[in-house]
C-alpha cells in the first residue's frame, strides 16, 4: 500500500507538470530530432539570422514603455531581455507547479517564498536541459534553435552566460530522464529543507523524505536497467547549486556593468541576498 501511495503521488505530479509547463521534454526532443512532422525550427547562428529570426519567430518581449529606446539597445542586451522574459514566465509556471505539490500550500507562507526563491533557478536549469543538445537550444517554445557557437560568440560577459548550462545539460541528458521522472525530481528540489532562513524545517523535510521515496520508486520502475540512477540524480543537485551560484554572480555583475540593462523586478527579488 505504501508503494501504491508513492505511485499515486508520482502520477499526480506528472499530471500537474503537464498542466504547468507547455513545452515538455517529449515534445522538445521530437522537435530536436525532426520527428514532429511540423516545419523545422528557425536556426539562429549569427547576428543576421537573429535579426531575421526576430521577424520570423514571435519572440516574446517584456512590455517596455519606450519601444524606440529598446530598439537602440545592442543585440546582446535585447537577447538578454528576451531570456529574462522567458525566465519570468518559467518562475510563474514553477510557482503554479509548486502549489500543486501535496502539502506545499500548507507550509508557512514565508517558507513557501524561501523555497521558491532558492529553488526556481535549479528547476529552470534542470528543465533547460530538456530543450538543449550539445549544439544549441530551442528558443521561443520550440519555434527557433539558437546555436551554442553563436551564444559563445557574443561579447563578454554575455558569452559566459549559457556555456555552463550546456555543459551541465549534456551530462544531465545522458541520464535519459523523461517528463514523468523530471516531475518528481523537480518536486524534490523545491522541497529542500536546507534553504537559508526557513522558519519551520521539519514539515518540509517530511515532505521531501516522502518525495525522495517516490523518486526512488519512480526511477526503479521506469529505468529498471539503471540501478544507480537515483544516486546519480541526487549528485546532480550539487552541480545545480553550483550553476545557480555562478549564474547569480554573473547577473549581479551584469547589473553593475551594463547600465543600459534592466533586470526584471521579479528576478531582482529572487537574486537579492541569494548566495
Amino acid at each position: 500500500p505504501e508503494s501504491a501511495d508513492l505511485r499515486v503521488l508520482a502520477k499526480h505530479l506528472y499530471d500537474s507538470y503537464f498542466k504547468s509547463f507547455p513545452l515538455t521534454k517529449a515534445k522538445a526532443r521530437a522537435i530536436l530530432t525532426g520527428k514532429t512532422g511540423d516545419k523545422a525550427p528557425f536556426v539562429i547562428h549569427d547576428m543576421n539570422s537573429l535579426k531575421a529570426g526576430e521577424h520570423y519567430i514571435s519572440f516574446k518581449q517584456p512590455p517596455v514603455p519606450d519601444q524606440g529606446q529598446q530598439q537602440n539597445k545592442d543585440m546582446e542586451i535585447r537577447l538578454f531581455q528576451s531570456c529574462q522574459f522567458r525566465s519570468v514566465e518559467a518562475v510563474r509556471e514553477i510557482t503554479e507547479f509548486a502549489k500543486s505539490i501535496p502539502g506545499f500550500v500548507n507550509l508557512d507562507l514565508n517558507d513557501q517564498v524561501t523555497l521558491l526563491k532558492y529553488g526556481v533557478h535549479e528547476v529552470i536549469f534542470s528543465m533547460l536541459a530538456s530543450v538543449m543538445n550539445k549544439d544549441g537550444t530551442l528558443v521561443s517554445c520550440g519555434q527557433g534553435f539558437m546555436t551554442r557557437e553563436f551564444l559563445k560568440s557574443l561579447r563578454k560577459p554575455f558569452c559566459e552566460l549559457m556555456e555552463p548550462k550546456f555543459d551541465f545539460s549534456v551530462k544531465f541528458n545522458a541520464l535519459e530522464l523523461d517528463d514523468s521522472d523530471l516531475a518528481v525530481f523537480i518536486s524534490v528540489i523545491i522541497l529542500s529543507g536546507d534553504r537559508p532562513g526557513l522558519v519551520n524545517v521539519k514539515p518540509i523535510e517530511d515532505l521531501q523524505d516522502n518525495m525522495l521515496q517516490a523518486l526512488e520508486l519512480q526511477l526503479k520502475m521506469n529505468h529498471p536497467d539503471s540501478p544507480q540512477l537515483f544516486a546519480k540524480l541526487l549528485q546532480k543537485m550539487t552541480d545545480l547549486r553550483q550553476i545557480v551560484t555562478e549564474h547569480v554572480q554573473l547577473l549581479q555583475l551584469l547589473k553593475k556593468t551594463e547600465l543600459d540593462m534592466d533586470i526584471h523586478p521579479l528576478l531582482q527579488e529572487i537574486i537579492k541576498d541569494l548566495y
Binding site: V88, V91, T95, V113, K117, P265, L266
Partner: peptide, 20 residues
C-alpha cells in the same frame, strides 16, 4: 521576507498576475 518578495508572494497567492 514578505515585504522583500512582493511579486513572489503575489504569485503564490494569485495565479493570474498578468501584469508581470
Amino acid at each position: 521576507l514578505k515585504e522583500k518578495h512582493k511579486i513572489l508572494h503575489r504569485l503564490l497567492q494569485n495565479s493570474s498576475c498578468s501584469d508581470l
